[in-house]
């Protein structure tokens, strides 16, 4: 176990920066590179001209932690409009999820299916359930015990992108793999 010094704020800032860079690096063509659930922290306000710059702090996600999963594996895959088939661009992420979950067998997850708002509420609940189960089936087929996985659909109730239009809609058509237990502490 790596002990973390009492500098949580600075560490979290660095962590977010790493996450954003990691996501951006993964992005190719129209595949969304939407940041994960953690909103970016505000930059600290400048204090005074004489204040020395803070010493650099190197950090890395603790292996087996939720951060490790989010940053180094990817916790979200995306879908086409009104579809629940696993896209080719989602397969490497789900393969990595399967491998990571095999490496950390105590971890349990909840697959959350999400939809864009270009559908009605109840239909989207059913569609989100299909997406969550498609991811679940993929993980199970790749060796993750089904008892470690639960599914839920949020339909269009929990958009990660508050905008409207094609780009926001694409971001919001996703399945999110949320760790519900068994991960290494931060």
């Amino acid at each position: 176990m790596v002990s973390i010094p009492d500098r949580k704020t600075a560490l979290r800032l660095a962590l977010v920066a790493t996450a954003a860079a990691s996501m951006a690096a993964c992005a190719s063509h129209p595949k969304p590179a939407y940041p994960t659930t953690r909103p970016p922290a505000a930059a600290p306000a400048p204090r005074g001209e004489t204040a020395p710059p803070p010493a650099p702090v190197s950090q890395a996600a603790l292996p087996g932690s939720e951060q490790d999963f989010v940053i180094n594996v990817g916790d979200r895959v995306y879908f086409d409009f009104d579809k629940f088939q696993i896209r080719p661009d989602a397969q490497p992420i789900l393969d990595a999820q399967s491998a990571w979950l095999s490496k950390y067998p105590a971890v349990t997850v909840r697959i959350e299916g999400n939809c864009d708002e270009r559908g009605t509420r109840e239909y989207n609940l059913a569609l989100g359930a299909r997406r969550a189960n498609a991811v679940r089936d993929y993980l199970v087929a790749h060796g993750v015990a089904s008892g470690r996985i639960t599914t839920i659909s949020y339909g269009k109730e929990k958009p990660i992108d508050p905008g409207s239009g094609d780009e926001a809609d694409q971001h919001n058509r996703n399945a999110h793999t949320a760790i519900t237990g068994g991960a290494a502490a931060r």
């Binding site: 629940f84 609940l125 059913a126 359930a129 299909r130 189960n133 498609a134 089936d137 599914t151």
Partner: peptide, 9 residues
Amino acid sequence: FSVEHAGNS
């Protein structure tokens, strides 16, 4: 009402 099971509603 609807019941969903294994993705099918």
